[in-house]
Nucleic acid binder design. Structure first.
Lengths: 196, 196
DNA sequence: CTGATTTCCTGCCATTTGGCAAGTAGCCAC
DNA sequence: GTGGCTACTTGCCAAATGGCAGGAAATCAG
């Protein structure tokens, strides 16, 4: 498998040049996941900084009452890991599971730190990844407060339609903060009353 | 003003020792804000990494329709800055305003970077601050999805009651993701029906 | 192929929340 | 003090969402 996408990704923020990107990419190991495989299981420490080349993943947390809540979807071109567990070396409260067969590249926490130490540009790149994740989450939170479930659904449909092709509706529903019943109705066209 | 709280904070994660904490703290400049003053205004780049020694701040974003939405409250002992604007050097979409008179310590982006460069421990500390902010936001998002407005209010009351002493109800309401009308009812004791 | 499971939709109704408006109380500026 | 503004509450009703259950369709395991 070619690591071209990864190399491109490393250059994408204008911090790392082509030559260094290739060198850094060389440190990554390839990894494949079959559908339903786990990248991370609850209770274990997230130790793989995983660049997703192809496929779709879902992160979710389990409520005490048994229901699981989707906390994120990851599509190709993104880095997948549980920030808190990875950097704090604490057991993850989340699972990350493949919704489709996946391929990608990873380095361990140890490797990442060595690279951060050896390559200031990569360190800055890593911070940039973190900051972007932060900004994405903030914007999702704002949308949760200011927009309706219907608008959030339509936004998801517009920005990452591939999620809706591979994730069962209940996973999407908890991600959007509604029940699967409600999401089903939203998809049906928001007819709560006046069915005719 | 003594910088003891700041020095303590720098040591709080077990990464930075007492001597180095004192040296780093020495780089900070003191800053005071009167009630209603702004630490950051929408459209400007967040350039102060501000440790809040005493007081209470609120971050908020303005909707196109005029309503503002509280995105965060900051109480003493926390670092206050807009992550995305600060690190990406992009105009902030948020305002950060003092709810009470505030005192604290800050360094600029430039100073922070110089310190990150010179002191690996402080770099790691800075990452730890970022990661914790990320985790806090994730947990707030989860609460938004899995718990009721009443539960979120009670949680806020339990963990940071000082917010409710100084922030007007509508600010708290948008933070919790409800209208001020609803929050008023929640405070009254959740009697939607059967008033008697 | 076949039975079991999962997914999704939908009807019925309860609950939660919102929108609007009126009214009281408190605060602030002059 | 006085007028005006903001904060908070509350009643009325509408809209959004949830809980539950039944049933059709798709998917999966053997």
């Amino acid at each position: 498998m070619s690591s071209e996408k990864l190399t491109q990704f490393l250059q994408s923020r204008g911090i790392i040049g082509a030559a260094q990107a290739a060198e850094i990419a060389g440190q990554f190991s390839s990894k494949s996941l079959a559908r339903h495989d786990f990248l991370l299981r609850e209770g274990r420490v997230s130790d793989e900084y995983f660049f997703l080349d192809h496929g779709l993943l879902r992160a979710y947390a389990c409520n005490p009452d048994g229901h699981d809540v989707t906390t994120a979807f990851y599509s190709s071109g993104q880095v997948v890991f549980e920030v808190s567990s990875f950097f704090t070396r604490v057991p993850s409260q989340e699972n990350i599971q493949a919704l489709t067969d996946c391929t990608g590249w990873f380095i361990t926490f140890e490797q990442l730190n060595a690279l951060f130490h050896a390559r200031p540009e990569f360190r800055e790149f890593g911070r940039s990844v973190l900051v972007q994740g932060f900004a994405t989450l903030k914007s999702r939170m704002l949308a949760m407060i200011t927009t309706s479930a219907t608008e959030r659904y339509e936004q998801l449909l517009k920005t990452t339609p591939e999620v809706l092709l591979h994730a069962p509706l209940k996973h999407v529903a908890s991600y959007l903060g509604v029940t699967d019943t409600s999401l089903s109705r939203i998809r049906a066209g928001a007819k709560t009353v006046a069915p005719d």
